[in-house]
Simulated scan of single mutants.
Amino acid sequence: MSQGRPNKAIQKLGIQHPIIQGPFGGGNSTERLAAAVSNLGGLGSYGAHQLPPEELGRVAQRIRALTDRPFALNLWVSDHDVGGDALSPEAFDRAYQLFEPYYRELGVEKPAMPERFHHRFEDQVEALLEARPPVFSFVFGVPSAAILAECRRRGILTSGAATTLAEAEALDAAGVDLIVATGFEAGGHRPSFLARAEDSLMGTMALTPLVADRVKAPVIAAGGLADGRGIRAVLTLGAQAAQLGTAFLVCEESGTTDAHRELLFSDRAKQTTLTRAFTGRLARGLRNRWTEEMAARQTAFAPYPIQSWFLSKLKPAAVQAGRTDLVSLWAGQAAPNLRHRTVPTLMEALIKELSAA
């Protein structure tokens, strides 16, 4: 499919194959992973939304030291939900009550309230512009016209995620270079921005042709894709490339834990769920104790990023103890079909399956 039949997405991105590695947050992205995908003719990505602005440039430098091919840095346009930008000390104490039993269980002290719960998108994107990655990919919204214009001036391609046709049309109207049509089968966060994520649950096979038929920008399909069959299917439906997340997350080059990888290769991968329990925003992962115990406590969730911040202070102790019951285990619905444990073997299989078609 990528041999002799170049399309606009491949041409714009300067890649060989219509394969995009989805960006991961929470330390799951690595420079090694992004570079490995790019070196093999796909587009590697690095999820940078949790990084302080001063670190973005260093990440870009480290990726460039490993590859001379195009890659993407990814940010979240919306850095907080309503009520998630600041708390009073009293509200902080109330929010902590949900987490207190688990902090005690793992022997973690109550954290001090920070000045901010997340880095400002405006500061991060300024640093990203300075770093000049070949591609700026983003979720949870549309950057301002000024930011998009500055990307064009600096030769940075832009790629935005849509979970509905309306979101895709908004991205297209803003002049975004590429649009990722992401179905609800995908692992990780549902990056909806025009309506509640729960009201924006379209599948990849329905969303892809709806978007491809109505926007000018090339479409990248994402969600529930794990092998060459899935890529061929979305190319047939009008996408010009496919973005795979969980298939790359399980590769040894990613930053996730070995315990997470083994669960993704086990029967547990058959049971995923959509939950706000980890971050305050809707996301798909494996069911575990946290998702089950929080199911009845949704009214106690703090808004993003406060919910995420409290759990991030618990995560190191949980990981050190080998506990997978209290950490996020992102996984897409196609996880039971995962077969490959390294980027080279995965990319070789995908390219072979595409070429055979």
Score class of each variant (00 low, 15 high):
Met1Arg: 05
Gly4Ser: 13
Arg5Val: 13
Lys8Ile: 13
Pro23Met: 09
Leu40Ser: 14
Gly41Met: 02
Leu43Ser: 07
Leu43Glu: 08
Gln61Thr: 14
Asn74Pro: 03
Trp76Leu: 15
Ser78Thr: 15
His80Lys: 12
Ala86Tyr: 01
Ala91Val: 13
Ala95Thr: 05
Tyr96Gly: 04
Leu98Trp: 04
Phe99Glu: 13
Pro111Ile: 12
Pro111Val: 03
Glu115Ser: 13
Arg120Lys: 12
Phe121Gly: 09
Asp123Thr: 11
Pro134Arg: 03
Ile147Tyr: 01
Ile147Thr: 08
Glu150Lys: 04
Gly155Gln: 11
Gly160Glu: 02
Gly160Phe: 04
Val180Met: 05
Ala181Ser: 11
Ala181Ile: 09
Gly183Asp: 14
His189Asp: 12
His189Glu: 02
Ser192Phe: 06
Ala197Gly: 13
Ser200Trp: 08
Gly203Lys: 05
Lys216Thr: 15
Ala217Val: 13
Ile220Glu: 05
Ala221Glu: 08
Asp227Tyr: 00
Leu237Cys: 00
Gln240Thr: 11
Ala242Ser: 10
Gly245Gln: 10
Gly245Phe: 09
Ala247Pro: 10
Phe248Arg: 03
Ser254Cys: 03
His260Arg: 03
Asp267Arg: 09
Ala269Thr: 02
Thr272Asp: 02
Arg276Trp: 03
Arg276Ile: 01
Leu282Cys: 02
Gly285Ser: 08
Leu286Pro: 02
Leu286Lys: 01
Arg289Ile: 10
Trp290Met: 07
Glu292Asp: 13
Ala295Glu: 15
Thr299Ala: 13
Ala300Tyr: 00
Phe301Thr: 11
Pro303Phe: 01
Pro303Cys: 02
Leu311Ile: 15
Lys313Thr: 05
Lys315Pro: 00
Ala317Leu: 04
Val319Ile: 15
Asp325Trp: 01
Trp330Thr: 06
Ala335Ile: 04
Thr342Ser: 12
Val343Thr: 08
Ser355Trp: 06
